[in-house]
Amino acid sequence: MTDNNPSPEKTIFPFAEALVPVLAFGGTLAGVALHNAGILFEIQYAAIGGLFASCLLAYLAWTRLHKDIVALSTPIYGIIFFVTPIEYTAGVVLQLVYAAGLTILAARLRYRFGPGIAGGSSTKELPPGPLRDYVESSGGAFEGLFSVIGHDAALAFFRFSEGEYQAAAELAHAASCRSGTPEHVVRAFSVIRQHAELLDKNLPRPLTYLTFLPADAPVMAKPLPGPGDPDHEFGTMMDNALLLLFSAAWHASPEDRPSLLSLQQFARKLLEA
């Protein structure tokens, strides 16, 4: 998880995107050269480069959190171009247009769908980004936290994310009463309990509500807003409480990490909102 030891995926990914145009254009240009040399008789087989490029593009699209259906479907065309006999000039033009299209899609994937996720869906670590930064920076606050409390935090986070607000409130209440729970974690459980109860009954923000203390600021994922906007403050309290529980669960209950990873998108949404 440390930056000193980058995973293989982290070093391959930037090159993989650049490889798409290289394969697509390179395949056709190599095909043209081989055809002129009399080695390749059918220009359709020069589309192999485009086919590999489209498969690579589809793989890169698959590893994104947001899937690009256009990029995912490009190998279909790659296969069609590879298996369909075509006249030389039309074949070359078609393959070059296809290569240009793949290049545009690779650039679009990079800039519109964000950087790739190291290791895709099978990763066991949080991908680099604000969520991992927060979880790592707040780790010290959960040193020595009992794993049972970490598991409680994970369960409260799971139930809340599933919209099971009553169950989340009950879990949070039980966890906040458990002996040995640090004060800031108790406050997070209490905030979650209050929000879950209100959401369960579809009630609006009360005039007075639970907040974190100024001393909790170092473990807050989002800065606490100043006075004057209670709705914003109320929402930020909930986000901070959920993210604090996410981090507590991550550090104290390693067996819950796979489930937490499956909900990282929700946690990221809370953090970036």
Partner: peptide, 18 residues
């Protein structure tokens, strides 16, 4: 249906009626 806030809709709610 359970009334939910839009921002709280996420992958783990797939299949739920809201």
């Amino acid at each position: 249906a359970k009334t939910v806030r839009v921002r709280l809709i996420n992958e783990s709610m797939i299949g739920k009626i809201v």
